[in-house]
C-alpha cells in the first residue's frame, strides 16, 4: 500500500533499448548533443541550431522528447547548476547514458545503411568529399 502511495509522485518504468523502434529526429539530435557532454535544455536547442538544421524543435517538443528519453533510460538528469553563459540561476542539466550511446550508434549505423542504399540507387553521388 505504501508503494502505491509513493507512486503518487515518483516511479518510472524502464524499457529495453535494443528492441526500440527508430529514434525520432529530435531524439537523435538530443543524443548527438549530449554525446559531447552534459547540456541544459536551451543549450541543446542552440546546438541543434548551430548544426545548421532547418527544423529546430520547439521547447515543448524537445521537453516531451526529453521526458520520453528519461523514461526510456536513454538520458538521465544531471546535477543542477548555473550555466556559465547565462545568469546565476540553476538549470536542469541532462547527460547521455550508456544505453543512449548505444541507441545513438545504432541509429548512425541505420542512417549509414540508408546512405549506402541511396548512393547505390543513384540518389546520391558515389563519393563524398
Amino acid at each position: 500500500m505504501l508503494a502505491e502511495g509513493v507512486r503518487l509522485g515518483m516511479d518510472r518504468a524502464r524499457h529495453r533499448t535494443d528492441d526500440r523502434p527508430a529514434l525520432r529526429p529530435v531524439e537523435f539530435h538530443i543524443l548527438l548533443t549530449l554525446a559531447a557532454g552534459e547540456r541544459h535544455g536551451y543549450g541543446i536547442i542552440q546546438d541543434i541550431e548551430a548544426r545548421g538544421e532547418t527544423v529546430v524543435p520547439d521547447e515543448g517538443t524537445m521537453y516531451r522528447a526529453l521526458a520520453r528519453m528519461l523514461e526510456g533510460g536513454l538520458i538521465e538528469a544531471a546535477a543542477r547548476r548555473p550555466a556559465p553563459d547565462a545568469d546565476d540561476e540553476r538549470r536542469h542539466y541532462y547527460r547521455i547514458t550508456d544505453a543512449g550511446r548505444r541507441a545513438a550508434k545504432t541509429e548512425v549505423r541505420r542512417l549509414e545503411m540508408l546512405m549506402r542504399a541511396a548512393r547505390l540507387g543513384g540518389l546520391l553521388p558515389k563519393h563524398t568529399k
Binding site: 509522485g9 541544459h40 535544455g41 536551451y42 536547442i45 521547447e59 515543448g60 524537445m62 521537453y63 516531451r64 526529453l66 521526458a67 550555466a83 547565462a86 545568469d87 540561476e89 538549470r91 536542469h92
Partner: peptide, 19 residues
C-alpha cells in the same frame, strides 16, 4: 504530471530564449 516533472526545466528554456 508533466508540469511536475518537466515544468521547471521548460520554463528555464523559455526564459533563456526570452533573454
Amino acid at each position: 504530471d508533466f508540469r511536475d516533472e518537466m515544468g521547471d526545466a521548460l520554463v528555464e528554456a523559455y526564459r533563456d530564449r526570452a533573454r
